Simulated scan of single mutants.
Amino acid sequence: MKIGQVASEADVTIDTVRFYERRGVLPEPGRRPSGFREYPASTVERIRMARMLQNLGFTLDEIIEMLHAHDTGTATCDSEQWRLEGALDRIDAKIAELRRTRRLISTTIKECRTGHCRFAGQLEGDRPLSRTESDGRGHR
């Protein structure tokens, strides 16, 4: 398969295929006599697997290590479980951060509704604005 066909079937750009090749996600393909890269059909599935692992929260370096373990036949559920646990820990940390951010936004909305805009005062370098000093929406 040529690079354009691989990219199209894997739903990525040609640049992504080249990037994955440079980083070691994909093995270096063979070359046609014309010099064009010739990818095996399995390249599409390998790209899809890498993308799926990225969506699960794995870093590119982790994905490369996982694919290498798979290629060498050393990957088992037991040997890879720690990677899954690490990804889950990162997701839990992101969820906690999003919850903190949500609470801050909710609190700020409540403050604005009572006439105090936390951000306007901080941006101006002074106290929060009250509704009487603003246009009623926390703006001057």
Rank of each mutant, 00 (worst) to 15 (best):
R118V: 05
C77I: 08
R32K: 00
M49D: 02
V25N: 05
Y39N: 12
T76Y: 13
G86M: 00
F119K: 10
D78R: 15
P27K: 07
E65Q: 14
I64E: 07
R100F: 02
L56P: 09
R100N: 13
R102H: 12
L98M: 05
T72S: 15
P128H: 07
E97V: 00
T108S: 15
T43F: 05
C112G: 06
A87F: 09
E97N: 10
A50W: 06
A120E: 09
R99D: 14
E28V: 04
L104N: 11
V44R: 12
S79E: 08
E85I: 01
C77Q: 12
A96L: 12
R23G: 01
T76I: 02
P128Y: 12
A41T: 02
E28G: 04
R113G: 09
E85T: 00
P40M: 03
L123S: 09
M66N: 00
L88I: 08
G115R: 03
F58P: 03
E45T: 01
R100C: 10
C112K: 03
T114G: 10
M49W: 01
E133D: 09
D89P: 02
E38R: 15
G35P: 08
E133G: 08
I91C: 13
N55S: 14
L123C: 08
M66H: 03
G121M: 10
Q54S: 00
T132F: 07
A41K: 04
I109V: 15
L123H: 14
R90W: 04
R118H: 07
L98W: 01
H70L: 08
E133I: 02
G24E: 13
L53W: 11
L53C: 06
A50K: 08
T114I: 05
K94L: 13
